[in-house]
Design a protein around this nucleic acid. Structure first.
Lengths: 192, 192
DNA sequence: GTCTATATCGAGATAGAC
DNA sequence: GTCTATCTCGATATAGAC
């Protein structure tokens, strides 16, 4: 079947999310995907190659989730709030962010590429929307939008870390609420 | 030697920081510590037990680093800034935070305990200092200090994630700068 | 393209001598 | 308390038939 390959990738996406790279064995991938031993190494040269394909897909998925939120019709600062409050699987962690501490990604460029690509995209997009907010007069021109974009991204990533650490989704919500409060505080209200 | 145990723990602390739990093998611990096979299982019943001891020490170390910064003579909000800008090994990641995505911590309470303890301590301390800032008149009473404490902690944890993802320490600094800007923006200056 | 068999290696732990 | 020998298992990959 031509889509055995797809099933391998799909299974790997799930397992990488749940367990990370180190803890995901070819055996587990075969079981989850229903594929056989031979198929694995026919379609991919190694576990790392399969993981790279899976991570690439995961990053693409995440971009697709982000895109409509940051490009809606809402005022720019509202889109930032929408980003912060979009639904997340707090306890599963970020599919991309959770990979950053795996030893492998320091050695294997192809595995780090999707991570860099996603984070670059997200930071860039957030910064763009923040710049729009400045043009709309909702945000002071003194704010460095690149820095703030990084802060927002970090808050979300750190929110996952806290939620995982405490095994409690509320911990991420708390961090997000704090960020929302800060956004509220610096918003420049229009005269009425 | 009585301190073979200590050397096992010290080596494990390093390896956990560098590679995490899954990727740290007993073999590597033995090599790094210079201890022998027998010593390992004499002093500890399992890899998990040794890791728990090592994590506990790491968490204690981190508390010791935090304590003087958050209890200095500086004004409360300055102590918050000092926390944000304290030196960090950006590319190594957080010894505690990096563990949160390891599958094992969902099952093993003894491994999650030091994580929960450290994060609880940090959030609590940050919230206390923020409340002091409110009493000093530097911070609006409208701010929920628990939420903001979580946000700051998350920013640092997320900063590590970004720095690791990009393999670039500057990414954490960027996130921190954004947070500092937000703190500046909400600070209530005293009349002169 | 997929299957089964097989190979190599290291992980994690135990046993019993010293 | 430490050593060496040993055990079992799974991770990762290869080989060659179908």
């Amino acid at each position: 079947m031509a889509n055995t390959r797809e099933q391998l990738v799909a299974a790997t996406k799930e397992l990488l999310w749940e367990r990370g790279y180190e803890a995901t064995s070819p055996r587990a991938i075969l079981e989850k995907s229903g594929a056989g031993q031979g198929s694995f190494y026919h379609h991919f040269s190694s576990k790392a190659a399969l993981a790279a394909a899976a991570l690439q897909e995961a990053a693409d998925d995440m971009r697709c989730n982000l895109e409509p939120i940051l490009h809606s019709n809402a005022p720019a600062l509202q889109r930032i709030r929408d980003y912060l409050t979009m639904p997340r699987e707090e306890l599963r962690g970020c599919r991309i962010g959770r990979m950053t501490h795996e030893p492998i990604i320091r050695q294997d460029e192809t595995l780090r590429d999707p991570i860099v690509a996603y984070f670059s995209y997200a930071e860039q997009e957030l910064a763009t929307v923040l710049a729009e907010a400045q043009r709309e007069g909702a945000l002071s021109e003194n704010i460095n939008v690149d820095d703030l974009a990084a802060t927002l991204l970090a808050t979300v990533q750190g929110g996952y870390v806290l939620a995982r650490g405490f095994q409690d989704p509320e911990r991420m919500h708390q961090a997000i609420r704090g960020a929302l409060t800060l956004i509220d505080s610096i918003e420049q209200k229009k005269e009425v």
